[in-house]
């Protein structure tokens, strides 16, 4: 599954290892034997049609949904069979940004970003505020947005605020569920640059569900295709173009994909 040529520069041990994952909702099987490795320090993009279970996969990896069978390890530790303390320690090492932002509606943006710091660390108040302020600016929000409440933000601003909260503690892995959906193209490109930059600067591993061909192309090291209830293919953009499967071909050879491919590739951007 994982191709050996692409291994250079990465630890051999995967940071996330999913094996034989099965997930059913009642009679409806969403995953049937999903295998996936994510390497330390890479940006992996997860693609698949709507309703193929990308969000469900993400929820299972971070332990919010219980798989029916199979094993999920993050940092070499099973997410399910851990004590509460171990799980808490694990959780501190990743940040999650949900598809619809999932901000706390009764807290302002800054308080949302401060929330994980408040829960996990004992920081003096002004340091916490300053760090939250940096994170809010990093994701491209104006200072004036800091004291707004989620219901007063636009969809794109909510996304950014969600991302700021996900990176509040400088986690080792960030899980992003469609981070660029709903952003304007300039904002989306800035988002890509930011993710790329943070990955380079902090050695971040990024697990990103996305439909945005531009981000797939610009920043993703590898792409995993979720279809037919399993991971159909994993590899670089170039590998994806070779895959012989109707959906994958349609996806990566469609008119939008061609436009994105024409726009320059990952190595040029960084």
């Amino acid at each position: 599954m994982a191709d050996p040529q692409n291994n250079a520069g990465h630890d051999t041990d995967p940071i996330i290892r999913v094996r034989g994952l099965v997930k059913k909702f009642g009679k409806h099987t969403v995953h049937d034997g999903v295998d996936l490795d994510v390497r330390r320090g890479e940006i992996i993009g997860i693609v698949g049609g709507s309703g193929t279970g990308k969000s469900v996969l993400l929820h299972q990896i971070v332990g919010l949904l219980k798989p029916d069978a199979g094993r999920i390890e993050v940092f070499g530790q099973s997410v399910r069979d851990t004590s509460d303390d171990e799980y808490r320690a694990l959780r501190r090492r990743w940040g999650v940004m949900f598809q619809d932002g999932a901000l706390f509606s009764s807290l302002s943006v800054r308080q949302n970003v401060e929330a994980p710091m408040r829960e996990q660390l004992d920081l003096p108040e002004d340091l916490r505020r300053t760090l939250a302020g940096i994170k809010v600016r990093m994701v491209g929000l104006q200072d004036s947005a800091q004291d707004k409440y989620p219901s007063d933000l636009s969809g794109g601003m909510r996304k950014r605020a969600g991302f700021a909260r996900a990176i509040a503690l400088d986690p080792e892995i960030v899980f992003l569920d469609e981070p660029t959906a709903g952003l304007d193209p300039i904002g989306a490109a800035a988002f890509d640059t930011l993710i790329g930059r943070l990955q380079a600067a902090l050695g971040l591993t990024v697990f990103m569900v996305t439909h945005d061909l531009d981000s797939l192309h610009a920043i993703c090291d590898r792409i995993a295709v979720l279809a037919e209830k399993k991971v159909l293919a994993v590899g670089t953009m170039a590998d994806m173009l070779e895959v012989d499967h109707p959906w994958v071909r349609e996806y990566f050879h469609g008119p939008r994909a061609r436009a994105a491919l024409a726009g320059g590739d990952k190595n040029e951007v960084r």
């Binding site: 002004d126 505020r129 300053t130 302020g133 940096i134 600016r137 990093m138 200072d143 930059r197 943070l198 380079a200 600067a201 902090l202 050695g203």
Partner: peptide
């Protein structure tokens, strides 16, 4: 190099003035 990149990123986003 990596640290410089990080410093630059943070420098670009320093809050102006005390909250």
């Amino acid at each position: 190099d990596v640290q410089t990149l990080l410093l630059d990123t943070v420098r670009d986003n320093m809050p102006t003035g005390a909250p």
